[in-house]
Nucleic acid binder design. Structure first.
Lengths: 124, 124
DNA sequence: ACTGCGCTACTACAACTGTAGTATGCGCGC
DNA sequence: GCGCGCATACTACAGTTGTAGTAGCGCAGT
């Protein structure tokens, strides 16, 4: 699957990032992995994970002690695609998006070259 | 100004896009310019414009008949920057973002080259 | 001057989000 | 075998967002 049209909020996406990184985790581990000055309460993270479960974005894998473990049920790529598509829509094309990145210094010409090279390599 | 940290929703951004394009418009014109199968009600657009006004993203310019005209009070670039920054944060860097674009075919190598060229030109 | 129609201003509201508390259950250590 | 403590399940709630209705005012044409 991973094709599902699941819409994630910002925070939900953040939690998914953690799960993609860790592969599998319980709520406590997710909370610990969240990188913020003001870390959300345990139950807050829990709620998010629950919502993700309802949406079908994560699934339970096992139980250790009385703690549940979760893993992603959708791919990082499918989520990124969605986010990127939305932004492209808003900005009006991927070219303008990248142009904007370059203009604002978020991306250097060297970066572009590196990406090009990598792309060429993987293409063939 | 245009430096303001104004957060816009998707729909608000859509309306801003129209205003950036038209330069100035009344609610009716904005509604007409919105490109959707299911066009929102006049009053819906009106509400959004009002919220944008409250947020300081647009300002009234004049009155014609009894219709108000609005113009953007923040720049396209500042809004894009915000959106892009958020996405980059989520994805973890602008390089991965562009790489993703290339991978998923949203951007061709030729596009990259074109951008590079344009960037080089404007740089000097 | 009057009236009708369009526009604004105000109000409403349900769904979604971020945030967290409470209650209860269950496994582990003693 | 029992209780402690952490985890879960459920509930709550305010702010935001998309969506739109209604009331009423003020131009524009007669």
């Amino acid at each position: 699957m991973a094709k599902e049209r699941i819409a994630l909020t910002k925070f939900e996406t953040e939690v998914m990032s953690v799960l993609w990184r860790l592969g599998e985790a319980n709520v406590r581990e997710v909370q610990d992995a969240i990188d913020r000055t003001e870390r959300p309460a345990y139950t807050t993270v829990q709620t998010i994970v629950q919502r993700l479960e309802q949406k079908g974005a994560v699934r339970r894998t096992r139980k250790s002690g009385n703690a549940l473990y979760f893993e992603p049920a959708i791919t990082r790529k499918s989520v990124y695609r969605r986010l990127v598509d939305e932004l492209i829509d808003l900005i009006g094309g991927s070219q303008p998006l990248v142009a904007h990145l370059v203009e604002t210094g978020k991306l250097s010409l060297d970066d572009l070259k590196a990406i090009e090279k990598a792309a060429k390599r993987s293409k063939k």
